[in-house]
Design a protein around this nucleic acid. Sequence first.
DNA 1: CTAGTTTCTTAACATACATCAATTTTTTCC
DNA 2: GGAAAAAATTGATGTATGTTAAGAAACTAG
Lengths: 194, 194
Amino acid sequence: MNSQKSFIPEIFKNVPLTKKEVVQIQGVFEKLTLKKGVTLLNVGELVEYQYYIQSGCLRTYFVEDSGKEHTVQFAIRDWWISDYTAFFSSSKAIMTIECLQDATIYKVSREDMENLYLEIPQLETFFRKKLEGAFSSFQKRILGSLSQTAKDRYTSFIATYPNIEMSVKNYHIASYLGITTESLSRIRREIAQN
Amino acid sequence: MNSQKSFIPEIFKNVPLTKKEVVQIQGVFEKLTLKKGVTLLNVGELVEYQYYIQSGCLRTYFVEDSGKEHTVQFAIRDWWISDYTAFFSSSKAIMTIECLQDATIYKVSREDMENLYLEIPQLETFFRKKLEGAFSSFQKRILGSLSQTAKDRYTSFIATYPNIEMSVKNYHIASYLGITTESLSRIRREIAQN
DNA sequence: CTAGTTTCTTAACATACATCAATTTTTTCC
DNA sequence: GGAAAAAATTGATGTATGTTAAGAAACTAG
């Protein structure tokens, strides 16, 4: 039945794993295919899973009382996504995860991962390092929001994430940068002119 | 000589450690006492250490070309501090760490920690969970900067970190919130009046 | 291919916060 | 305890980005 190559070595690149370990890890992952527009996680739901993106594009966003949306994270090929604040504390989602482009993803529960860490410590190291990278990115984003104009933040965004820019709407980018779609439009015009 | 109780169980609260492990860990930590005003890390220096705060108050800040300062992190009792982006990648500091109140701290190198992780996996779990918490805080801060007014961010700040507010200058808080000291002053007046 | 819907753009006006320039208050330290 | 330095406050004015409202452009689905 299972003639296709395992996706596990692809996810855990550079992590040395025995065949037995690959099978064991594979057992706790579940494949999902998502259509554009689908909601993967709703506000108020218990967040038990995080998701590895094999293809497609998703975003996590927060909705204010006023109805305004704020994109916290985009994810494309080889990224992970969840409402991490809720995931880490096994609590209820305050954010929504939406599929922006048809996607193939793998889900895994926090509980299963924590159990695997005990048996395969290099998995914990793998995720710790991912987390260190994400921490640095967030810090950079905070610094940007403190020190850069909207135009500079947009320019950095498209330079840093050209693949994301391609697959999302401008108003998604605006809600990630913390500006209105109208302001982004003006910024784009300004950039196009000069 | 060493009649005082080890500080290690205090740092790694809730981590089960044998006496031998405590001694081993203790061997890679070094105690420092800092006077208010001292700079612990300068821009351009290789970042090999992170620091655990036993008492006192420090901050990490970034200086723009224009000279404007942006506080990225405060740290008080039982917090850790570093220029983490540089620390995680063993590269050069882009930020400065400054002592704001006389402090007693413990420093440990990334290399020593990574080696300890291999022998004492529960230390890696401890730091991974710290990192998860820090990740959530950063996410919350990004959401705040996207969705809240300066006044709301200030109110949240003093509610969340009353102990920090006590030990730092208003202009430090302003530079953390991403506003000028003049704006913070107006916000404080407004709050005092109502 | 066309009608309807979604997304993007533009313009006029509003507002939160920044800037500049004093002045007052608080802290430091001899 | 008083002079000097540092920090906080205040007012007048400027600016980046938001808001509202409309229309143009780009998709989507029958």
